[in-house]
Each structure stands twice: as structure tokens, then as C-alpha cells.
Amino acid sequence: TETYTFDSEDQAEEFAQRAQKKGYTVEKRKENGKFKVRVE
């Protein structure tokens, strides 16, 4: 499980979609103005 942090929602969304296409489970959340994407 890895967590990635992005400054913009667009970046987080793009990353999450790519990860989902590769078959990963993706969980997105906003925390302290940053966008976190957890991938497993």
C-alpha cells in the first residue's frame, strides 16, 4: 500500500484513474488542503 500526495485535485484524479486502469484499488481523500491517493 502506497499513499501519494498531490497539490491539485486534477493531478490526484488523473493518477487515480491510471492506477485503477492497472487494476489497483484506489482511495482518494482530501486532507489539509492536499489530495491524497492511497493505492493497493
Score class of each variant (00 low, 15 high):
F35G: 01
Y4K: 03
Q17W: 07
A19E: 07
S8V: 05
V26H: 02
E40A: 13
T3A: 05
Q11L: 11
A16N: 02
E2F: 15
T25L: 13
D10R: 09
V37Y: 01
R38D: 10
E9I: 06
V26E: 03
F35Q: 01
K30M: 13
K28E: 05
E13M: 06
R38M: 13
E31W: 04
K30Y: 15
D10Q: 11
V26P: 03
A12P: 00
A12F: 02
E27D: 10
G23L: 02
E13G: 04
R38I: 15
Y4A: 03
E2K: 15
D10P: 06
D7P: 04
K22A: 14
E9T: 03
D7R: 03
A12T: 01
V39S: 01
Y24P: 02
D7I: 06
F6D: 00
F35K: 01
E31S: 05
K34E: 06
N32P: 01
T5Y: 13
Y24R: 06
Y4R: 05
D10W: 12
R38H: 09
D7Y: 07
E31A: 05
F35I: 09
E31Y: 04
E13L: 07
Q20K: 12
D7M: 06
N32Q: 08
A16F: 10
K34G: 04
A16I: 11
T5P: 02
E2S: 13
Q20R: 13
V37T: 01
V26T: 09
N32V: 02
S8H: 09
E27N: 09
V39Y: 03
E2N: 13
A16Y: 09
T3P: 04
E14C: 14
E31V: 10
T1M: 12
K21S: 11
A19Y: 11
T5L: 09
Y4F: 12
T1V: 13
F6C: 07
A12R: 01
Q17G: 07
F35Y: 11
Y24C: 14
V37R: 00
Q20N: 07
T1G: 14
T1R: 09
D10I: 11
A12M: 09
K28M: 15
T5I: 13
R29G: 09
K21T: 08
A12E: 00
R18Y: 09
G23W: 03
K30W: 14
Y24N: 06
F35H: 05
V26N: 02
T1L: 10
K28W: 11
E13F: 06
A19G: 02
K30E: 13
R38S: 12
Y4H: 07
E9S: 05
F35E: 01
F15M: 03
G23Y: 03
Q20T: 11
K30R: 10
E40Q: 13
A16D: 01
D10V: 10
V26F: 03
E9F: 08
F35S: 02
E31I: 08
E13P: 00
K36W: 10
F35T: 04
V37I: 07
Q17I: 10
A16V: 09
K22T: 06
K22V: 06
S8I: 05
Q11G: 06
G33E: 05
E2L: 14
G33S: 04
E9Q: 07
T5K: 03
Q20D: 04
K34N: 05
K21W: 05
F6N: 00
V26D: 02
E2P: 08
N32Y: 04
E9R: 04
